[in-house]
């Protein structure tokens, strides 16, 4: 990342075929249009058709092949047709079960994730700001975060039984590390020039935290949160699979043990959808929070 003047554009895969902003020094003072239009060649009806094909073709082929395979007589008992899975899915989850099994799981996920975020960011800021405390605690943290979080499930069952506390604790303990460590990195990386600027203009205390430190560290914090979210889903499921009497993970294992195969698949599909939806939601939030960061990076790359 060179710190050259930003008005100059270097050719990149994405803008080589668009007229690039002029690199003439006299143009320096003109605002550089940075509305990033990706692949301008894909406009018009043909482009739309191509885009639709990009999105739908491969999934359609995959499902089609799977369907053709499973529809044969004598195809595996364990691989029901998409139609059978779909029916089971509608019957299972468009009913009370959704509120009994799925919503509480999601609630625990949300609580655990939120707590982990709060603790991780809070502690991360403290550690990031104080080199002494950081040096003292770091080796212990390095060890604690290296513990694969699922091994805590059996322990938490012994300590807290199989109730919500256990499951939430497991989620919190597993998720807090990537958030914490990324926050520390982000806070440490706050630009000293910006930090000095803030001091000169009397920006201190909570404003400094809110306006400077948290915002400046937000790319790293978001990266930590993204990892933590994926981990939280895994931990939610396995804490329910391991020992539980309710929840989505429990339901899926029950289906498997009773050989209710289409239902088991329906559970897996729901889990997949939850994973997909949560990660899409996260991306949406991230796009809002880090819009400036993407632009800044693009500007530095000279796009």
């Amino acid at each position: 990342m060179s710190r050259t003047t930003l008005g100059q554009a270097q050719p990149t895969p994405e803008n080589t075929h668009t007229p690039s902003p002029k690199a003439d020094p006299t143009e320096q003072e003109s605002p550089v249009a940075r509305t990033r239009r990706r692949r301008p060649g894909n406009r018009g009806p043909a482009g739309a058709a191509l885009r639709t094909a990009h999105v739908l073709l491969l999934p359609a082929v995959l499902i089609g092949v799977y369907w053709a395979f499973t529809a044969q007589p004598g195809a595996g008992f364990y691989t029901p047709t998409p139609a059978a899975i779909g029916t089971a899915f509608v019957e299972l989850w468009f009913s009370d079960r959704f509120f009994v099994d799925v919503l509480p799981s999601l609630g625990r996920l949300a609580v655990g994730f939120a707590l982990a975020a709060l603790i991780g960011v809070g502690l991360g800021v403290l550690l990031g700001l104080d080199a002494r405390v950081r040096a003292t605690i770091e080796p212990v943290l390095e060890f604690l975060r290296a513990i694969p979080p699922p091994v805590l499930v059996p322990l938490m069952i012994m300590l807290a039984g199989i109730d919500d506390t256990m499951k939430i604790t497991v989620i919190v303990f597993g998720c807090v590390w990537p958030i914490l460590l990324n926050t520390v990195e982000g806070v440490r990386a706050v630009d000293p020039v910006l930090s000095d600027t803030a001091r000169c203009y009397g920006i201190t205390g909570t404003t400094r935290l809110r306006v400077l430190i948290l915002r400046s560290a937000s790319p790293q914090i978001m990266a930590g949160l993204r990892l933590a979210l994926a981990l939280a889903i895994i931990l939610m499921v396995i804490s329910e699979m391991f020992a539980s009497s309710s929840g989505l993970g429990f339901a899926i294992v029950q289906f498997q043990r009773t050989f209710a195969i289409p239902e088991m698949w329906a559970g897996m599909v729901l889990l997949g959808i939850i994973g997909f939806v949560l990660s899409s939601l996260f991306e949406l939030v991230e796009g809002r929070v880090l819009g400036w960061y993407r632009g800044l990076r693009a500007a530095h790359r000279g796009e």
Partner: peptide, 20 residues
Amino acid sequence: PPPGMAVVFQEYGRSLFAWM
């Protein structure tokens, strides 16, 4: 840093808040 003083740094890119 006294309230009656303002500073302009050399590193303009780093002294502005990129998220504002």
